[in-house]
């Protein structure tokens, strides 16, 4: 069975604040002269390897796991998957 690398990105939902990202932007980037940087959002990346028949099944299996095991709290965070490689 083919094996896929799937990256899971967990971030606060767009409407929900991210004080850590705000602090990195203000206190580190802008303060030290990188004023063209306009926004920083933090998050968590889970790099997974999964065996599946095809890439779509791999993605849906990973998403199913994220939802059913509460790898993120849907109240606060959004979760997206991206294919890193096959």
């Amino acid at each position: 069975m083919p094996r896929f690398r799937i990256d899971v990105f967990i971030t606060n939902k767009p409407a929900i604040r991210d004080p850590e990202g705000e602090s990195i932007l203000q206190d580190l980037a802008i303060r030290n002269g990188f004023v063209s940087v306009k926004s920083i959002r933090t998050g968590k990346v889970l790099a997974m390897e999964i065996e599946a028949e095809n890439v779509e099944l791999a993605k849906s299996k990973v998403m199913e796991m994220c939802d059913s095991l509460r790898l993120y709290n849907p109240v606060v965070s959004s979760c997206s998957v991206r294919v890193a490689s096959e």
């Binding site: 850590e20 602090s23 990195i24």
Partner: peptide, 14 residues
């Protein structure tokens, strides 16, 4: 310092 944001100590180090 700076809420330990990014990594403890890194922002103050600048």
């Amino acid at each position: 310092s700076y809420g330990d944001n990014l990594r403890a100590g890194v922002i103050a180090a600048h």
